[in-house]
Deep mutational scan, measured.
Amino acid sequence: NITNLCPFDEVFNATRFASVYAWNRKRISNCVADYSVLYNLAPFFTFKCYGVSPTKLNDLCFTNVYADSFVIRGDEVRQIAPGQTGNIADYNYKLPDDFTGCVIAWNSNKLDSKVSGNYNYLYRLFRKSNLKPFERDISTEIYQAGNKPCNGVAGFNCYFPLRSYSFRPTYGVGHQPYRVVVLSFELLHAPATVCGPKKST
Rank of each mutant, 00 (worst) to 15 (best):
A145G: 09
K26M: 10
K114M: 15
Y91F: 06
L60N: 08
N40M: 13
D75K: 08
G155S: 11
F160R: 01
L41Y: 03
V153L: 09
T63I: 12
N120Q: 10
S184W: 12
L188R: 01
P43G: 10
K114A: 15
T201V: 02
N120C: 14
S164L: 15
T193Q: 02
V52T: 05
K48V: 13
V65A: 08
Y35P: 10
N130P: 07
P191R: 07
L5G: 13
G155A: 09
S29Y: 10
N130E: 05
R16F: 13
L188C: 00
A14K: 07
N87G: 12
N157D: 06
L187W: 03
E10A: 07
T170H: 15
R27K: 08
S184Q: 12
F156R: 13
L125W: 01
V52I: 01
N1H: 02
D97E: 09
V115Y: 15
K26H: 12
Y119V: 15
G117A: 15
F47T: 06
E141D: 00
P43Q: 11
N40P: 10
T170W: 15
R78Q: 07
V115W: 15
Q144P: 14
T140D: 03
K132N: 06
A22Q: 07
N118P: 15
L125G: 00
Y178W: 04
L60T: 01
V194M: 11
H175F: 03
N120L: 10
I2Y: 08
D9Y: 02
K56T: 12
I138L: 00
T201A: 00
R78I: 07
L187R: 00
E141R: 12
I88V: 14
V173T: 00
L187V: 01
N130I: 01
P149F: 09
S200Y: 07
K110R: 09
S184R: 14
N147V: 03
D97L: 11
F156H: 11
T3Q: 01
N151Y: 04
H189L: 13
S116R: 15
S116P: 15
E186T: 06
G155R: 14
Y119N: 05
G155E: 13
Y159H: 01
N58D: 02
T100Y: 10
D97V: 06
Y121F: 13
Q84E: 04
E10R: 11
N1P: 05
L187D: 13
R16M: 08
K56E: 09
D97N: 09
R27M: 08
R78N: 01
W106Y: 14
L122D: 13
D90R: 11
F160H: 01
A42P: 02
A190I: 10
R163I: 11
N24H: 08
G174Y: 02
I2S: 06
V173H: 00
K110I: 14
F17W: 10
K26V: 10
N58E: 09
F160T: 09
N64G: 10
D59G: 06
N40Q: 10
N87D: 10
N109W: 15
S200R: 04
N87V: 00
N40H: 13
S184Y: 10
F44E: 01
L122R: 06
G83L: 14
P197K: 10
L187M: 03
T140Y: 09
A190T: 02
V65F: 05
S53K: 10
F47L: 04
L125A: 09
S129H: 00
R163E: 12
R78M: 09
S53R: 09
A105T: 10
G174P: 07
N40D: 06
V115L: 08
D9L: 10
V153C: 04
T55I: 04
E141A: 13
V153S: 11
D59N: 10
T193P: 02
A14Q: 08
D98K: 06
E186D: 10
L5F: 04
K198S: 10
S108T: 11
A154G: 03
T15D: 06
P191A: 10
E141H: 07
N1D: 07
K114C: 15
K114G: 15
K132V: 11
Y39M: 05
T85E: 12
F44H: 02
I142T: 14
L38V: 03
N87Y: 09
N58M: 13
A145I: 09
P133A: 07
E10D: 06
A145T: 04
A190D: 05
S164A: 08
N4I: 12
S53C: 11
D90N: 02
N151H: 07
N130F: 11
L122I: 03
S200I: 02
P7N: 06
I138K: 13
I2N: 11
F156G: 02
R73Q: 06
P197Y: 00
K48R: 03
G196Y: 08
I2C: 04
T193W: 14
P54G: 13
G152E: 11
G174T: 06
T201W: 10
S19H: 15
V115I: 08
N1R: 04
I2T: 03
A190P: 01
F126I: 13
T3A: 04
A18E: 12
V32H: 09
T193Y: 14
T3R: 08
N58G: 09
N147E: 08
T55Q: 10
L60I: 06
L188A: 10
F45M: 02
V52F: 01
D9Q: 10
R73A: 04
D98S: 11
G146T: 08
T46D: 01
K198Y: 03
K199M: 11
V194N: 05
L125N: 08
T170F: 15
A22E: 02
N120P: 15
A154K: 12
S139G: 11
I2F: 14
G196N: 02
Y66I: 00
N109Q: 11
T140R: 14
A190W: 12
F156M: 04
N1E: 00
R78C: 02
P7T: 10
K132A: 03
K148F: 08
A67M: 13
V194D: 08
S108A: 09
F126C: 07
L111S: 15
L125V: 00
N24K: 00
V173D: 03
P149D: 03
N130K: 07
Y39A: 02
Q84R: 05
N151D: 01
K148M: 06
L122V: 14
L162I: 12
A33W: 12
S53E: 02
T140S: 02
I142F: 13
V37A: 02
A42M: 02
Q84S: 04
A192K: 02
R78T: 09
D34N: 12
V153T: 00
F47I: 05
N118E: 14
K128Y: 07
T170M: 14
K148L: 02
P7K: 02
V52M: 10
Q144D: 14
N109V: 05
Y39S: 05
F45S: 02
L187K: 00
T63Y: 06
Y35I: 08
V37D: 07
T55P: 11
D98E: 05
G174Q: 08
Y123K: 14
T63G: 02
N4G: 10
F126N: 07
F47Y: 04
K114S: 15
R163S: 08
A105V: 14
S166I: 12
N130Y: 04
D75E: 13
N13M: 11
H189M: 06
E186Q: 05
P54D: 10
N87K: 10
P197V: 00
H189V: 11
T140M: 11
P197N: 08
N120A: 04
L60S: 05
G117K: 15
Y119F: 02
N4A: 06
K148G: 13
F44C: 06
Y35V: 05
Y39F: 04
I138S: 12
F126W: 04
V173M: 00
N109A: 03
I72V: 14
N87W: 12
E141V: 11
S200D: 04
K110T: 05
N147F: 08
T140Q: 00
H175W: 13
G174N: 10
F47A: 06
L38F: 06
L122E: 01
L187Y: 01
Y35S: 11
P149N: 03
F45Q: 02
K128R: 10
V37G: 02
L38I: 09
N30P: 14
F45K: 08
D75N: 09
Y66V: 01
A145N: 07
V37C: 10
K199S: 00
T193S: 07
P169G: 15
S184T: 02
K148V: 07
I138T: 02
T201F: 05
Y39I: 06
T140N: 00
V37P: 08
F160D: 10
N118H: 15
F44T: 02
P191K: 03
